[in-house]
Nucleic acid binder design. Structure first.
Lengths: 138, 138
DNA sequence: TCCTACATTGGACTAAGTCCAAGTCAAACA
DNA sequence: TGTTTGACTTGGACTTAGTCCAATGTAGGA
């Protein structure tokens, strides 16, 4: 993902300090952060950055397909920089922890035509739920 | 689902006009409504019912497993009364329409132990995304 | 019929996100 | 290198979805 900035420049992005910082934050940590977490980490590197800009930038990255938006049923959306390796998610029903997982099988192939209702199906998202070792251990 | 009220009574639910109305609303329409839509339909039958009660009741129904909470990536959670037939969802990326679908295959079995990270996995939720015929047709 | 624990109410509150007018600045061009 | 300009950023107000709570109402058992 270190060439993310290159790809963005190639797509006509004007490169600003704010955008660079947001990209660095996403690059640096492989956890699934909320917009707010991204914002506070960004503020640590560039104190004047505003919430609006973080939201804008995340939105743009999602549109460009560089970052995935993950909404488990928790409140805030989370952002997943790992957009270029297809994967799914395993989330803890109690504490909300998220892990990337790679199941075998291809759920897209498991949806027969008769179950598509004329939709043009392009994507599938699988979310496993359960308890993480910490939460289950108690 | 017409025996929903019976089941709830059997579980010690105190039966009130408000709860009956919410149950009727969910029973009546098989679409996936937001809490707000449930509320306005409920108001049509029982004008004094409050938003708080609708939220409470929906929350209880979800805890009891009578109703499923569906959060596509849209803003508001949606409620799915069809909790007793396991199924997944197909959602239109443009207009947000939702259909219930029944894929073949068992995604739970597709998650190898090495990909479970010690979690106790109990559930899986599959969301297909694409365009509905109306939105694709344009 | 009375009692009381459970349910409802509505209004204030919170969290997450969007919008916008005004100001700033990256980069194309001369 | 300096100028220009339209894309980008800002912060604060606004919106939407949902929660909380103290006061009030009521279902259902005795």
């Amino acid at each position: 993902m270190s060439d993310l900035l290159e790809r963005l420049r190639g797509r006509g992005w004007r490169m600003t300090a704010q955008r660079r910082v947001v990209a660095e934050v996403l690059d640096g940590e492989h956890v699934h952060m909320t917009a707010d977490e991204v914002h506070s980490r960004a503020v640590a590197k560039l104190p004047e950055i505003s919430r609006a800009t973080v939201y804008n930038t995340l939105g743009e990255l999602v549109t460009l397909g560089e970052v995935l938006e993950v909404s488990t049923d928790k409140r805030a959306k989370r952002y997943d920089p790992n957009a270029h390796r297809p994967h799914h998610h395993l989330v803890c029903a109690r504490c909300g922890a998220i892990r990337d997982v790679h199941p075998t099988g291809n759920p897209l192939a498991d949806l027969p035509d008769t179950e598509r209702f004329g939709f043009t199906v392009s994507d599938v998202e699988v979310t496993y739920r359960g308890l993480c070792p910490e939460c289950a251990g108690a």
